Simulated assay, not measured.
Amino acid sequence: MELELRHARVVVTIGTAGSISAGAQELGLPQPSLTAQLRRIERAVGGDLFVRSRSGVTPTELGARLVPLLADLVRRADEVMAEALAASGGPLRLGCTEWTPPALRDALQAALPDTAVQTRTLNPEAAVEAVRRGALAAALVPRVPEPAGGVPGGDDDEPALGRALIVREPVWLAVPHGHPLSARTSVGADELTELTDHAGLAWVRSSQDHWFRAVERRVLGGSAPGRVLHHVNSHQEAMNWVRDMEVVALTTPSGALPGVSLVPVTGGERVDLVLLWRGNALPRETPRTLVDTVRAYYCDYARSRPAYWSWIRDHRGEFGELGRHLPQPVDTSPRPEFSTRSAATQR
């Protein structure tokens, strides 16, 4: 096997992350896949690069010589790609799942005034594949909460991807305005089937091949509760059915539409919204700009839905990734009262 740039990125990521498991998480790859890649790379260079232990990895004598050289190779490759992108004036293409709000595209363009921004809506698997192939520079995709977890990965020959968590969205119940459940402050995940059986709720569920199907199965179980009137292929279609047909559905808050009320589901699932990018296709600072812009946009969206923004404020510990975009907690501790007697004494 000949050593390639993608192999250098794998080694550098493992070294920087401090462990194979942390490196796999950062690259969006299954840990066994990354372990197999590292073994092939080590065979190609003629020896082990890291000593594995329960606490992580440390460079071997060979690794101490080669890892800095590989890191310099990755840095120089990034500089070449940044210069090439600037010289070509080509657009930055970003994919989104479900739908792409025009305001999000405008926010990205404002954050990158010297780069033309193009957006595209497609399903998560297609978005990840497009980033791997270079058809997209980055993609905003949900992390499907299957037991194995993780963003859909590729095989061992695919280039490594950068990734950053934007927000961990709760999964809530969507009901029509005025529905009896809309007055609830929350509903337990374990109540949904019982409520359906006693209240005769009608549902819309995701189609078999839609990414949200796995989320519904985790919350509702393998069998469909009550009556399922329709299977949808997008959150927007589901919300239209909730609004117009007096049915209920599960959704993330960003998938809701006007005309629909959201009820928090306690003890439910969360969906990780993740930004992926092809490491050698963007200037070094661009991923940071994208991440910060998308997080700021998400908070602006949440503010437009007071009930959800209030929930975020009350559960800010669960939204730590939004960082500085969250409101600072109000200091409610009592302040010392001003004493006129002490002031007079001082005079």
Rank of each mutant, 00 (worst) to 15 (best):
V10C: 03
T16V: 06
T16F: 04
A17M: 09
S21Q: 08
A24H: 03
Q25K: 05
E26D: 03
G28Y: 01
G28L: 05
G28F: 02
L29Q: 08
S33G: 04
L34G: 01
A36M: 10
L38H: 12
E42V: 08
R43C: 07
R43Y: 02
G47M: 15
D48M: 14
F50V: 01
F50M: 05
R54N: 14
R54H: 10
V57H: 01
T60I: 10
E61Q: 15
E61F: 13
L62W: 02
L66K: 11
L66R: 08
L66E: 03
L66P: 07
L66I: 05
P68T: 09
L69D: 09
A71S: 15
L73P: 00
V74F: 04
R76H: 13
R76Q: 13
M81I: 00
A87H: 13
S88H: 10
S88V: 09
S88M: 04
G89E: 09
G89A: 11
P91S: 13
E98G: 13
W99N: 09
P101S: 05
P101W: 01
P102N: 10
Q109F: 05
A111Y: 07
P113F: 02
T115D: 02
T115Q: 11
A116G: 12
A116M: 10
T121W: 08
L122I: 06
P124Y: 00
A127W: 02
E129G: 12
A130N: 10
A135I: 01
L140R: 06
P142T: 12
R143L: 04
E146R: 13
D156C: 02
P159K: 08
A160N: 01
G162H: 04
L165Y: 01
R168T: 11
E169W: 14
P170E: 12
L173S: 11
L173H: 06
H177K: 11
S182D: 12
A183M: 06
T185M: 02
S186L: 15
A189E: 04
E191Q: 15
E194F: 05
A199S: 02
A199W: 04
G200A: 12
G200L: 06
L201F: 00
S206T: 09
H210W: 07
A214C: 14
L220Q: 12
G222N: 14
A224F: 02
L229D: 08
Q236L: 13
E237V: 10
E237Q: 10
W241G: 00
R243D: 03
R243H: 13
T252H: 04
T252F: 00
P253M: 06
G255P: 07
A256M: 13
P258G: 08
P258N: 09
P264I: 11
G267Q: 06
L276A: 02
N280S: 15
A281V: 03
L282Y: 05
L282F: 00
P283W: 02
R284N: 00
P287I: 05
V291R: 15
R295M: 06
R295N: 04
R295Q: 07
Y298W: 13
C299V: 15
R305L: 14
R305M: 14
P306Q: 12
P306G: 07
P306E: 08
I312Q: 12
E318C: 03
F319A: 06
E321G: 03
E321W: 04
L322M: 11
H325D: 05
H325I: 00
V330I: 14
S339P: 15
R341S: 10
A344M: 15
T345A: 14
Q346F: 04
R347K: 15
R347M: 08
